[in-house]
């Protein structure tokens, strides 16, 4: 028995409708899978989302690799966690002064009786008015840079620190290279040649490298996801009353990009 022509048409229409319905259901599943990473990647929707979508499509599990946010030139604020001494351990940001001929690792250091630490070789640092060290911008010392007794007045990067009863201060010299720090796989380096200390009416470049390019660049680490960093450098004092001494700077905190 042969099917009649209207019956055949009805069967074709039914099969087509079922196929369309199946296709529609399949599209809905795919949309559900990609929606989640779009929300997770909100921190950097322009470049990171595409990567996450690709990963999700292949593995169909949420991304577990760290999201690299702090890489390349880091322009912004390296906020400074205040130094502290507890149980003989020094944490946070600090400064040390190495005697001529000494090393940053072994000293000998100049003890600062005004230090809050039992180990007076450490002078603790606290964030200044700007909250820390800015890159891509100068944090110049005020004019005048000293009060009548030679206390340094610059207070943008760190709060002035009493050393031998006189406060030293830090700023970045706008006449030198703009402070710059960059990250590569969580390792920091940069140009802080403009970093300058002010003490007892004397002005001492404490840059790394030095403005003439000598000396080592600053080194450190940064958590690519959170921006938590450590940054340290040593800088030989050339000329002036502390000629031959070496400053050791250790900063800790969190980096926040501009904007």
């Amino acid at each position: 028995m042969k099917a009649s022509r209207p019956t055949t048409r009805l069967l074709v229409a039914t099969v087509g409708a079922l196929s369309l319905f199946g296709a529609a259901c399949s599209d809905d599943d795919t949309t559900t899978t990609t929606a989640a990473p779009t929300t997770e990647a909100a921190g950097d929707p322009t470049t990171t989302v595409a990567d996450v979508e690709t990963t999700m499509a292949e593995t169909t599990v949420p991304a577990t690799d760290p999201m690299v946010m702090y890489e390349g030139d880091l322009v912004g604020l390296f906020s400074i966690d205040a130094g502290a001494c507890a149980d003989g351990a020094v944490t946070g940001s600090y400064f040390q002064m190495v005697m001529p001929g000494g090393t940053a690792e072994a000293g000998p250091f100049i003890g600062n009786a005004d230090s809050a630490c039992a180990d007076t070789n450490y002078s603790l640092l606290a964030a200044g008015a700007d909250g820390g060290l800015m890159t891509g911008a100068a944090q110049a010392a005020p004019d005048p840079a000293f009060d009548a007794t030679g206390n340094g007045l610059a207070d943008s990067i760190v709060a002035p620190v009493t050393f031998f009863a006189v406060a030293f201060a830090a700023a970045t010299d706008p006449n030198e290279a703009m402070p710059m720090v960059s990250a590569a796989d969580g390792v920091l380096t940069g140009d802080l040649s403009a970093f300058t200390a002010y003490y007892g009416t004397g002005i001492f470049n404490q840059g790394a490298p030095k403005p003439d390019g000598s000396g080592a660049a600053p080194t450190g680490t940064i958590d690519p996801e959170t921006g938590v960093y450590t940054l340290e450098w040593t800088s030989l004092i050339v000329g002036g009353s502390f000629d031959g001494f070496t400053g050791v700077w250790h900063l800790e905190g969190t980096f926040a990009p501009n904007g």
């Binding site: 007794t149 030679g150 206390n151 031998f164 009863a165 006189v166 003490y199 007892g200 009416t201 004397g202 009353s241």
Partner: peptide
């Protein structure tokens, strides 16, 4: 502090 300010320079 005054002494520092004079001796330092």
């Amino acid at each position: 502090p005054t002494i520092v300010g004079e001796f330092n320079p």
